[in-house]
């Protein structure tokens, strides 16, 4: 009984810690603290956003393009993500200068796996839904909604993001550019 309670508590604590990590990350991006954001990315991170295609039901395995070989919206590591931050910091990256107002909402957070176990988790796989809103200049709006599959690894007392797969629920992207982090 006590062991079950312990296990349940460990799961709750893990879920809480992961949620707090994701919320803090969203705040970093919305508050434009991009260097803080880079610091919570594992050096070996893979940041991948496949394209979604309209495929017949019997070929839905091909709905999303494949990491490492097909075209995607993003399929990159920390070096390029860092360059994106550096580009914003130049102050002349016109797609984000004047700066946009961006809001990241994270919801439906589910822990899919914890290794070796919840209490001493070193690696967790987390699924969530996201909504990213951007208002640019006066009346330009972008609304991106989709699913994220994240792999977090423990780093001292906190977490780092090792892999992120972003499944945007759009076929033809309804946005002129993707200059926000998702």
């Amino acid at each position: 009984m006590l062991a079950e309670l312990d296990e349940g508590l460990a799961g709750l604590l893990l879920a809480r810690s992961v949620e707090q990590f994701l919320y803090a990350e969203a705040a970093m991006l919305d508050e434009r603290r991009y260097r803080d954001w880079l610091a919570i990315l594992d050096d070996g991170i893979r940041y991948f956003a496949p394209l979604a295609r309209n495929m017949r039901r019997d070929r839905l395995g091909e709905e999303y393009t494949r990491q490492g070989q097909d075209l995607a919206w993003f399929d990159e590591g920390k070096e390029t993500l860092t360059q994106r931050v550096e580009q914003i910091e130049t102050g002349i990256h016109w797609a984000e200068e004047p700066v946009s107002r961006v809001c990241h909402m994270v919801t439906n957070v589910e822990i899919l796996s914890a290794v070796p176990e919840a209490r001493h988790a070193e690696t967790v796989e987390v699924r969530c839904r996201f909504l990213v809103y951007r208002n640019r200049l006066q009346d330009e709006e972008m609304l991106l909604i989709g699913k994220r599959l994240d792999t977090l690894v423990r780093d001292g007392t906190g977490w780092k993001l090792r892999r992120r797969e972003i499944r945007l629920d759009q076929n033809v992207l309804q946005a002129k550019n993707l200059t926000v982090f998702l």
Partner: peptide
């Protein structure tokens, strides 16, 4: 390459 980027 497999996949076509399409955007408005």
């Amino acid at each position: 390459v497999e996949g076509v980027q399409k955007w408005r």
